[in-house]
Simulated assay, not measured.
Amino acid sequence: MPIALRPRTKPPAERRDELMNAAERLFLARGFEGTTVEEITTGAEVAKGTFYLHFATKGDVLEALRERFVQGLLDAVTAAVAGQPRDDWRGRLAAWARACAIGYLDAASLHHLVFVAVPPPSREGMARNVLVDHLDDLIAAGAHGGAWTIEESGFTAVFLFNALHGVVNQAAAGEPTGDRGSLLRALEAHVFRAVGLRPEAG
């Protein structure tokens, strides 16, 4: 029986992920400016030339890390909402708020790196991004289903996203906000109030 040989080279997507993972570790440990391309390639155990097959600059890696962070958070939020019954609008809205907050809290250092320490070139992301769009769709669908009355779902989505973002950043910075469970319950209650629902007791 012939022995299957291991491929000498890894698929491009896997190699790209390894470069990104090495860059993430180094950026978090040393900062963006304090990290060199050579250190990234050494961390990923690849030749320096391999870096330039995937990225033109160190900044391109940072932008890829931003995109991966946002997509991972969107995937978690989408899964949390999808896990609720389709007609349970209260549950779906609460799932959105909790999953979004937990995603930010669990990756606070990475979020700070890619959005605060080295901010993106535009502020547009706070008003229009995939997470705001997802919440906009959820609020609009809930209004259509009679769960609440919201005339401007887009405005409400931007308002709630930025409010949640601010509170979570405050918690990540170590400012007093209580324990995580209390924070999530408070966020949920404020999200409910914003769409005209009474917060659940207890």
Rank of each mutant, 00 (worst) to 15 (best):
L184S: 09
A4E: 12
N169V: 14
R128T: 10
W96D: 12
T50C: 03
N129Q: 06
R16A: 15
P2T: 11
R198K: 11
A95C: 14
G59A: 10
A141F: 04
E188D: 15
L164N: 00
A99S: 15
L183H: 06
A127I: 10
A95V: 02
F115K: 08
G49E: 14
T41I: 05
L5M: 14
A47H: 12
L187K: 01
A127E: 14
G34M: 00
G31Y: 07
L187F: 00
A173P: 02
R198Q: 10
F55C: 04
D75A: 12
R180A: 13
M20C: 08
K48A: 12
G146H: 02
G43W: 11
I40C: 05
L164H: 07
A189E: 06
L160V: 13
Q170C: 12
H165I: 01
I40L: 08
L74H: 10
E200N: 03
R30F: 03
D60N: 10
E38L: 15
R16V: 04
E14V: 11
N162Q: 09
L53W: 14
L138P: 07
A79M: 11
A201C: 00
D17H: 12
S122E: 13
Q71I: 04
T177W: 04
A171K: 04
A140S: 07
A94F: 07
